[in-house]
Design a protein around this nucleic acid. Sequence first.
DNA 1: ATAATAAAAGACATTTTTATCTTTTATTAT
DNA 2: ATAATAAAAGATAAAAATGTCTTTTATTAT
Lengths: 145, 145
Amino acid sequence: MGIFSKTCEYAVRAVFFIAQQTADGSRVGIKEIAVNIDSPEHFLAKILQDLSKRGIIQSVKGPNGGFYLDAQNLSRPLSDVIEAVDGGGIFRDCGLGLKECSSKNPCPLHHDFLDVRNRLQNMLESITIGQFNEDLNLGIVVLKK
Amino acid sequence: MGIFSKTCEYAVRAVFFIAQQTADGSRVGIKEIAVNIDSPEHFLAKILQDLSKRGIIQSVKGPNGGFYLDAQNLSRPLSDVIEAVDGGGIFRDCGLGLKECSSKNPCPLHHDFLDVRNRLQNMLESITIGQFNEDLNLGIVVLKK
DNA sequence: ATAATAAAAGACATTTTTATCTTTTATTAT
DNA sequence: ATAATAAAAGATAAAAATGTCTTTTATTAT
């Protein structure tokens, strides 16, 4: 198990891919996305449907349709995707699973975990969905394998 | 989904509880552990069986039997428990699920994730299983609710 | 209007995780 | 030796996550 669910991993990879592919105003289809981020097509379709409903990505049906991101979408923080798919638990929940863990009633790891989670959250909030377009174009970073 | 699996959360809470309860050389039974860390008894039993096989905790059958930790066990890092239950993936695997993600072939988050994971690992390697015994005695930290 | 396209939606299937219950084995005290 | 105790082991079951396949709906180009 990674930090995120498999669903969330696919979501992030797909969003980055759509960002890069549609920066020119075009759209990209589910099949092409799935192939290029190495994910099961129909499973990814569900994920993107959900992201589309939430306004994190855009979609249009029919010929020349597909998924794309508008300028707004590109400027949103990556944490939006994580929150949409996995929920914000990773930023907030107790590392040991305690419901009422808090500074008043802490688990043994409360303090240390607070630090780690805050760093993760700050990181994901400061990264934008569109910020890797250039690096993806140059092949400096990758989304599959 | 938290950072760790539910299994791992139970394991860590249980290990901390056993540490505190058996510091005096006694043993503690599965029923008492389960009640005090708020976990399903038989499910926890499996987890502790496994930790026992791996030498992370000790167990003896029969009357006056139960689980306990020896001095060695108490001084081991908490990361041992995480590795035993969830595996070391959380310290090593790509945040976006790429098999071959590396500094040579990085995913977009590679660099940032490296930092977060290393911090998590350092934290869990520097915490020992026995180090919260005092705080648990004093009620400064808790293992249930 | 019609046919082609592509996402949306629905129905299942599989796998993994989490949980429960029963039987067996080892140990201890009597 | 025997009975009592407690973990180990085995067998299922339920729930959640992941994956696949089919049908429907919206849009576009002809």
